[in-house]
Simulated assay, not measured.
Amino acid sequence: MTFDLYVWHEPAPISADAAEAKVREGRFRAHPAVPAFRDDLLRRFPPQQAPGVWTMTPDTSDSVLALSCVWSRAGEFGDAVRTLAAEHGLVCYEPGTHLLDPNAPAQ
C-alpha cells in the first residue's frame, strides 16, 4: 500500500474537485517553485536513505510532482510535504482522501 500526493502551483485558490480534475486530465502549468520544492524534498528524504520512504523517486518536472511513499511513513511524509509545499507556495492534493491542503496563495 502506498500514500500518494500531487504538488503543483496554482495562481489562485482552487477546490478539491478542481484539483482532482487537474490530476485526472494532467493540466498543469510550469512554475519555478515546483523543481525547487522537489530539490528540497529530496534533501529531506534522500532516495537512497534507509529505511526508505519512497516507493519511487519523483520524476523531475517543472509543472507537477507525483509523490508516492511507503504507507508506514505516510504521516511523517505527508506532514513534511504539506509544510514544504506551503513554504514554496504550492498546492498539495491527496487523491485517496480528496483533500487539498494547503490551498496556497498565489505567488
Score class of each variant (00 low, 15 high):
Thr2Phe: 10
Thr2Met: 12
Phe3Cys: 11
Leu5Glu: 13
Tyr6Glu: 10
Tyr6Ile: 06
Trp8Ala: 05
His9Ile: 01
Glu10Gln: 11
Glu10Asn: 11
Pro11Thr: 09
Pro13His: 01
Pro13Cys: 01
Ile14Gln: 03
Ser15Val: 01
Ser15Glu: 05
Ser15Tyr: 02
Ala16Gly: 07
Asp17Leu: 08
Ala18Tyr: 03
Ala18Thr: 13
Ala18Ile: 07
Ala19Thr: 03
Glu20Ile: 00
Ala21Leu: 14
Lys22Asn: 12
Lys22Glu: 05
Glu25Ser: 12
Glu25Gly: 09
Gly26Gln: 05
Gly26Asn: 04
Arg27Lys: 13
Phe28Gly: 04
Arg29Ser: 13
Ala30Trp: 06
Ala30Ser: 15
Ala30Asp: 12
Ala30Gln: 14
His31Leu: 04
Pro32Leu: 04
Ala33Ile: 05
Val34Pro: 10
Val34Ser: 03
Pro35Phe: 03
Ala36Gly: 02
Ala36Glu: 14
Ala36His: 08
Arg38Gly: 01
Arg38Cys: 02
Arg38Ser: 03
Asp40Phe: 00
Leu41Met: 09
Leu41Arg: 05
Leu41Glu: 08
Arg44Lys: 10
Arg44Tyr: 04
Phe45Asp: 09
Pro46Leu: 04
Gln48Trp: 11
Gln48Phe: 09
Gln49Lys: 11
Gln49Tyr: 09
Gln49Ser: 09
Ala50Trp: 13
Pro51Arg: 00
Gly52Ala: 10
Trp54Ile: 07
Met56Lys: 14
Pro58Gln: 06
Thr60His: 10
Thr60Trp: 07
Ser61Gly: 02
Asp62Glu: 12
Asp62Gln: 12
Asp62Trp: 06
Ser63Tyr: 02
Ser63Val: 00
Ser63Ile: 00
Val64Lys: 04
Val64Phe: 05
Ala66Lys: 13
Ala66Glu: 09
Leu67Ser: 06
Ser68Cys: 10
Ser68His: 11
Ser68Ala: 15
Ser68Leu: 01
Ser68Val: 02
Cys69Arg: 01
Cys69Asn: 01
Cys69Glu: 00
Cys69Tyr: 04
Val70Ala: 12
Val70Asn: 01
Ser72Val: 05
Arg73Phe: 07
Ala74His: 09
Ala74Ser: 15
Ala74Phe: 01
Ala74Ile: 00
Ala74Asp: 13
Gly75Lys: 08
Gly75Arg: 09
Glu76Met: 01
Thr83Trp: 00
Leu84Tyr: 07
Leu84Ile: 03
Ala85Val: 06
Ala86Tyr: 11
Ala86Thr: 06
Glu87Asp: 15
Glu87Lys: 15
Glu87Thr: 13
Gly89Pro: 13
Leu90Lys: 05
Leu90Gly: 11
Val91Leu: 04
Cys92Arg: 02
Cys92Glu: 07
Tyr93Thr: 08
Tyr93Asn: 03
Pro95Ala: 10
Gly96Val: 08
Thr97Glu: 14
His98Arg: 15
His98Asn: 14
His98Ser: 13
Leu99Glu: 13
Leu99Trp: 12
Asp101Cys: 10
Pro102Arg: 05
Asn103Lys: 00
Asn103Val: 15
Ala104Gln: 06
Ala104Asn: 08
Ala106Glu: 15
Ala106Arg: 14
